[in-house]
Measured scan of single mutants.
Amino acid sequence: DLSALRVEEVQNVINAMQKILECPICLELIKEPVSTKCDHIFCKFCMLKLLNQKKGPSQCPLCKNDITKRSLQESTRFSQLVEELLKIICAFQLDTGLEYANSYNFAKKENNSPEHLKDEVSIIQSMGYRNRAKRLLQSEPENPSLQETSLSVQLSNLGTVRTLRTKQRIQPQRTSVYIELGSDSSEDTVNKATYCSVGDQELLQITPQGTRDEISLDSAKKAACEFSETDVTNTEHHQPSNNDLNTTEKRAAERHPEKYQGSSVSNLHVEPCGTNTHASSLQHENSSLLLTKDRMNVEKAEF
């Protein structure tokens, strides 16, 4: 173990290094160091905050020279020094078990990766560091076993998940096959086929009936047209017969005018059967003409 005197000496050296690497504005270890034209180094955030307070150039807090945003430059070497100082402080805390008085939040800088452990060898070769390295080497064999167990647990979990997924996939297939086998029997399929065939026959029977009705309507229309044509021909046949009657009536009127007047009046009210309204109107006109002729003949006879 380190003596108290040596611990104090190391602590004083760390404090001196820390004062050199402090920012003059925030009085902390410089984060993202930036250098000016006057070779003074500050935190990048502190300098941008200072420049944004005034429009135009501002003055350096140490030498009062003008500073602009374009004049600022990043210093990589200074950032490396800060990183190495942080590593020294971490090693000091691990070796002594004491917390550094002016320690900052170094938890963000710590890294437990194997590459980081290899890099620590180049920091300080001390008894405390050696003991700590031995402890780490002793704890390393235990870690692979834990990793193997965790991997086995994960693989077993994956296997159970896969088996569950396969079961879920197989179950719908089985149910679907069961439904297909038990849903419709052979008799049901035959009945469905016969039902479809009967429906098709009914459709075939319905369509000819409609065509037959249309044919019957067409035949009825044709018969009505033929009947009207026969009526017209009958009226045409009746007209010459009426003319013959008129000639006979004229002759009778010349011989017996008194008797014919009474008979002509009675004939006005008689309509021949089986004739249309057109034929009756023609008869009325003929009878009126005959009456006028008879009157003329009677007057001539009187004179």
Rank of each mutant, 00 (worst) to 15 (best):
D1P: 05
D1T: 04
L2G: 06
S3Q: 07
A4K: 15
L5N: 04
L5Y: 06
E8R: 06
E8K: 11
E8S: 11
E8A: 07
E8F: 00
E9I: 04
V10R: 14
V10A: 08
Q11G: 14
I14W: 15
N15P: 15
N15E: 04
N15Q: 07
Q18D: 14
Q18V: 10
Q18A: 13
K19R: 04
K19M: 04
K19G: 04
I20S: 08
L21R: 15
L21F: 07
E22W: 03
E22A: 04
E22H: 11
C23Q: 15
C23A: 15
C23S: 15
P24H: 08
I25S: 06
C26F: 15
E28K: 12
L29P: 01
I30M: 08
I30Y: 10
I30H: 09
K31W: 11
K31S: 13
E32P: 12
P33A: 02
V34G: 13
V34P: 14
V34D: 14
S35D: 02
T36P: 00
T36K: 13
K37E: 00
K37F: 01
K37Y: 08
C38A: 15
D39N: 03
D39V: 04
D39C: 03
F42P: 15
F42G: 09
F42C: 14
F42L: 06
K44A: 10
K44Y: 07
K44E: 06
F45N: 12
F45S: 10
C46F: 15
C46T: 15
M47S: 14
M47I: 05
M47V: 07
L48W: 03
L48R: 10
K49N: 02
K49P: 02
L50G: 10
L50P: 08
L50H: 09
L50I: 06
L51I: 09
L51N: 04
N52Y: 02
N52E: 13
Q53H: 07
Q53E: 04
K54C: 01
K54R: 01
K54N: 09
K55R: 03
G56F: 10
P57Y: 07
S58F: 10
S58P: 15
S58L: 08
Q59T: 04
Q59V: 14
Q59E: 01
C60L: 15
P61M: 04
L62R: 13
L62S: 11
C63F: 14
C63R: 15
C63K: 15
K64N: 10
K64W: 00
K64T: 13
D66S: 04
D66L: 05
D66A: 04
R70A: 12
S71Y: 10
Q73I: 12
E74L: 02
E74T: 00
S75I: 05
S75C: 05
T76L: 15
R77E: 14
F78W: 08
F78R: 13
F78M: 06
S79V: 08
S79Q: 15
L81H: 07
V82C: 08
E83L: 13
E83T: 15
E83I: 13
E84Q: 10
L85M: 04
L85Y: 08
L85G: 07
K87Q: 04
I88D: 15
I88V: 06
I88W: 13
I88F: 11
I89D: 04
I89F: 11
C90G: 06
C90M: 10
C90R: 12
A91H: 12
F92A: 11
F92Y: 10
Q93K: 15
Q93R: 10
T96G: 13
G97C: 10
E99T: 07
Y100R: 15
N102I: 11
N102V: 00
N102T: 05
N105W: 03
F106Y: 02
K108L: 08
E110S: 10
S113D: 15
P114F: 01
H116V: 09
L117D: 01
L117Y: 06
D119V: 15
E120K: 10
E120L: 15
V121P: 03
I123R: 07
I123Y: 07
I123H: 14
I123S: 02
I124A: 09
S126F: 10
M127S: 08
M127L: 07
G128S: 06
R130Y: 03
R130N: 02
N131L: 08
R132Q: 10
R132W: 00
A133G: 08
R135I: 00
L137S: 06
L137P: 08
L137R: 07
L137C: 10
Q138S: 06
Q138E: 07
S139M: 04
S139R: 08
S139P: 09
P141E: 06
P141W: 02
E142A: 09
E142L: 07
E142V: 09
N143L: 06
P144G: 06
P144K: 10
P144D: 02
S145Y: 01
S145M: 02
S145T: 08
L146M: 07
Q147F: 01
E148L: 01
E148C: 06
T149W: 02
S150V: 01
S150I: 00
L151N: 10
L151Q: 13
Q154W: 04
L155F: 06
L155G: 13
S156H: 08
G159Q: 15
G159S: 09
V161Q: 12
V161E: 12
R162P: 12
R162C: 00
T163G: 09
T163Q: 14
T163N: 12
T163P: 11
R165H: 01
R165C: 05
R165D: 03
T166D: 08
K167C: 00
K167T: 00
I170W: 02
R174W: 03
I179T: 08
G182I: 00
S185G: 14
S186H: 03
E187G: 02
D188I: 02
D188S: 11
T189Y: 00
V190F: 14
N191F: 00
N191L: 00
K192L: 04
V198M: 08
G199I: 00
D200S: 06
Q201W: 01
L203T: 13
L203I: 06
L203S: 09
L204V: 06
L204C: 04
Q205H: 05
P208K: 08
G210K: 12
R212H: 15
R212V: 10
D213V: 00
D213T: 01
E214F: 00
E214G: 11
I215Y: 07
I215M: 01
S216N: 10
L217H: 09
L217G: 13
D218N: 08
D218T: 06
S219V: 13
S219F: 00
A220C: 14
A220Y: 00
A220E: 11
A220K: 00
A223I: 02
A224C: 08
C225V: 13
S228C: 03
D231W: 00
V232E: 06
V232K: 13
V232R: 04
T233W: 00
T235S: 01
H237Y: 08
P240L: 05
P240A: 15
N243P: 07
D244L: 04
L245T: 09
L245M: 13
N246V: 04
N246R: 10
N246F: 01
N246C: 07
T247A: 03
T247I: 04
T248K: 07
T248Q: 02
E249D: 09
E249R: 14
E249Q: 12
K250I: 10
K250L: 01
R251V: 08
A252E: 12
A252G: 15
A252I: 14
A252R: 00
A253F: 14
A253D: 08
E254R: 00
E254W: 05
R255Y: 01
H256P: 13
P257M: 01
E258K: 03
E258W: 07
K259T: 06
K259D: 09
K259R: 02
K259S: 03
Y260L: 08
Y260R: 11
Y260N: 09
Y260T: 12
G262M: 01
S264D: 15
S264E: 12
V265C: 09
S266F: 00
S266C: 09
S266H: 04
N267F: 11
N267I: 02
H269V: 10
H269A: 03
V270Y: 13
E271R: 01
P272D: 13
P272E: 05
C273S: 07
C273E: 13
C273W: 00
C273M: 02
T275Y: 01
T277D: 14
H278A: 14
H278W: 00
H278T: 04
A279N: 14
S280V: 08
S280I: 04
S281P: 07
Q283I: 00
H284N: 05
E285S: 02
E285K: 11
N286S: 04
N286F: 00
L289I: 12
L291W: 00
L291F: 00
K293L: 00
R295E: 01
M296K: 09
E299S: 00
A301N: 11
